[in-house]
Nucleic acid binder design. Structure first.
Length: 176
DNA sequence: CGATTTTGACCTGCGC
DNA sequence: GCGCAGGTCAAAATCG
């Protein structure tokens, strides 16, 4: 592992606010980012809803390596949204902890696509990060699923405040 | 020493 | 049915 923390910090210093949108149906081609997409007059971020009315990967019954431990994910399409950010690093610090579980080279791009998964238990939120071949400074991040737990970074930041509140609560009750 | 990344193999869906 | 492209697993390697 190289120094990804510095890159993450660099991404953190540039908070490109991500637009997000629920996926509009009817866009099933893979090339949801075309050259026209990045030529949109959006200054920093552009958004493209991911197509795919059927998610072919969630309904898979994984049978690799003689252990079909893939959870019985229903074919209910989990919410997916993709957005593009202009960032120097692949992993943008969104407050959650992600564990990389794969990397593949895609056809249309010379840059590989990375697959991440939320490290929290019972939180099967996945995201995939790909860098545009046309512009290396554009990173396409596709989230899939919603977190069923609070952001740990946020909780860490809120922990002192919560202690203050717990300490002040009896006093406030006495005053009111 | 535990958690995470790397990386090759393997599996599935889809188009022809 | 076959091949390709994409997605995931898991063992080894590596980092803090």
């Amino acid at each position: 592992m190289e120094k990804g923390d510095a890159a993450a910090a660099a991404a953190q210093t540039q908070p490109a606010y991500p637009y997000f949108s629920s996926e509009p149906p009817g866009n099933t081609n893979n090339e949801y980012w075309s050259s026209s997409t990045i030529s949109l007059p959006l200054p920093e971020t552009a958004v493209q809803g991911m197509g795919g009315d059927h998610d072919g990967e969630a309904s898979r019954e994984k049978g690799a390596k003689s252990s079909s431990n893939w959870r019985t994910s229903r074919k209910a399409s989990r919410p997916r949204f993709a957005f593009q950010t202009r960032s120097a690093s692949d992993v943008l610090d969104d407050g959650y902890r992600w564990r990389k579980y794969g990397q593949k080279a895609v056809k249309n791009s010379i840059h590989p696509r990375s697959y991440y998964r939320c490290t929290h238990q019972a939180c099967n939120v996945k995201k995939q990060v790909q860098r545009l071949s046309e512009d290396r400074s554009i990173v396409v991040t596709t989230y899939e699923g919603v977190h069923n737990h609070p952001c740990d970074k946020l909780m860490e930041a809120l922990a002192p405040l919560m202690k203050q509140v717990q300490f002040l609560a009896p006093l406030l009750n006495g005053l009111l």
